[in-house]
Amino acid sequence: MPALLDKRLIFVTGKGGVGKSTVAAALGLLAARRGLRTVIAELSNQERVQRLFEKHGERYEEVELAPGLFTISIDPDHAMDEYLRVKVGALGHMLGSSRLFHAFTMATPGMRELLSIGKIWELAQIQRRTRGAPAYDFVIVDAPATGHGVGFLRTPQKFADIARVGPIAHQGRQIATTIADHKFTGVVVVCIPEEMPVNETLLLRESLAEDGLDLDVVVLNALYPVRFDDDEVDELEAALRRARSPLSRSALSAALSEHARADCQREQHERLRADVDGRLVELPYVFADHLGPEQLEQLADALEPQL
């Protein structure tokens, strides 16, 4: 299997709240630093990546975040209009403006996912469907949370199976083949060192395997620094027993609390490493008010030697 950054299409998934958008953004910065023209595609309609970079661009247009790094927010409605315009011509125009048709497609289970994934596939093509649109070397998808994530990747094949013939079946099969191609497509799972996210990561791996997919990299995010060794912890505990001033007491309590949490993290870290060793990439907890461009650059720095 080629290295992650030698692939073309990367799906970033993981349990809700583990930092998928952050990791997608840091990965994007790294790819752009290596000279790859990169786009981060978002599906949640929340423009999280744009906000991380403190940009406020057009909704469904590609916005440049940094030199060589772009983002786009994918909306199924918009993707469908585009598809119809390009693929079906005048007829498509008629359909696209039909409210009935919109209602029908949007209500059809899975159709929203198919349209979104179709647009992602289009972004990853060397010959873009959209006339005059330049090609990308690297497409990062800030994918839905796990559970939904695997379902999302399965959508094209499901549609190919259901529709059997016709353009949807054809397109579904084409996309499914691309997703199954390990040389082209990769899966990154973001995890934090807590029990549930680690469980989900391990489960996700099994469920990807059922579809002939594999995870390329697990990014273990938000690792606390290990600041104190066991002897020092004893020392801190003794100091806390003696300490009188509220300031000292608070500082010592905070140190012991963080150490306890770091210990819990270590246990989960080991559990994960036992299963995905060799594909584990680590990112530190970022102590900041919120994540902005500066912190993303730091995270990209941290990824640099690991990928």
């Binding site: 498509g92 497609t105 259901i162 529709a163 059997r164 016709g166 353009p167 949807i168 079946a169």
Partner: peptide, 8 residues
Amino acid sequence: RRVTGVDL
């Protein structure tokens, strides 16, 4: 039909 495929 043309867009979705008849069977769907």
